[in-house]
Simulated assay, not measured.
Amino acid sequence: MDRIIFKVTKEDEGKRLDNFLKYEKGFSTRLIKKITKNDCVFINGKVAWADDILKEGDEIEVIIKENKSQDISPEDIPLDIVYEDEDVLVVNKPPFMVVHPTKSHQSGTLANGVMNYFTKTSQNCIVRLVNRLDRDTSGLVIIAKSQFAHQAMAKMFENNQVKKEYLAIVEGKMEGKGTIDLPIDRPSLDSVKRCVIETGQRAITHYEVIKSNNEVSLVKLLLETGRTHQIRVHLSHIGHPILGDELYGNKSHFINRQALHAYKLVFKKVRGDSLVECKADLPLDMLKVLKEYNLE
């Protein structure tokens, strides 16, 4: 059971309770209906209704009762925890690790390790992934600890309120900074590979070259949208595929995966207005590549 408390400020006085929970606090319409129907919302200690009008100084208490069963086996997998609070856990995922169990990867996933961590620390949580990374992409993954936190974080991602920065080592010499604004989609329904296609979804990637030589470049990338394989597709399309990316580029002698790392996330705390900034240093295999190309 999660107990969440909100204080009504002057700016929110006069708003309906349901609108406050939905538009200011990130609750879904479905969850609001559930908690109000089951008498799980209180204003100043009294059961509240969805159409109650808020006053400055009101204390809103929300009780969320969840089914916290999940078919993910805890496994003692070391986790590189970058940040944790009452609502989220941020982990630096190593390369070659799947984030969630699938038919072909039933164990050894990030979710198995997170479930073990929740069990060991006596946190009655299930694994709710807010963002995902490809198996071969390393870096920061956010796990929400409740349905409320998951919805709030998902809304931040949807509204482009989470700053997502990556580092990539790409083929060839790139220079300066710029924006790639090109739509992406599958060329066919059974295709794993994506491509730039006129009828696709809009995808925006901002880039800035950190250092480069005639062989490779280290590039910082800021995602404004979050399409599948977006960075890999965009960089390949402009003639600078990520080093080691065999799907969109070429095999590398120095790294056996795409040299892509989700290194920075900035987001607002689920409860409160303070910002959280998480960073994960480049993994050893990418540092080794930079050394091989004299870009360390």
Rank of each mutant, 00 (worst) to 15 (best):
I4F: 13
F6M: 01
K15T: 01
N19F: 09
F20R: 11
F27A: 03
R30E: 11
L31N: 11
K37M: 11
D39K: 15
C40D: 14
V41C: 04
W49S: 13
A50W: 01
A50I: 14
I53T: 13
K65E: 15
N67H: 05
D71M: 10
D71G: 04
I72K: 09
E75S: 06
E75F: 00
I77T: 01
L79R: 03
V82E: 03
V82H: 08
E86L: 01
M97K: 05
S104D: 14
Q106A: 13
L110V: 04
N112A: 06
N112I: 05
K120T: 12
N124M: 03
V130D: 11
R132V: 07
T137I: 00
S138F: 07
I142C: 04
I143D: 11
A144P: 02
K145C: 09
Q147L: 15
H150G: 07
M156H: 10
V170Y: 04
K173S: 15
G178Q: 06
I180Q: 05
I180F: 08
D181R: 00
C195T: 15
I197M: 06
R202V: 09
A203D: 11
I204C: 10
H206M: 00
N213R: 00
N213M: 04
E215I: 09
E215K: 15
V216L: 10
V216W: 08
V219S: 05
R227A: 00
R227N: 11
Q230F: 09
Q230G: 10
S236N: 00
H237R: 03
I238P: 06
I238C: 04
L247E: 08
K251D: 10
S252A: 04
H253R: 14
F254A: 02
N256G: 09
Q258F: 10
L265D: 05
K268S: 15
S274P: 06
L275W: 07
L287S: 12
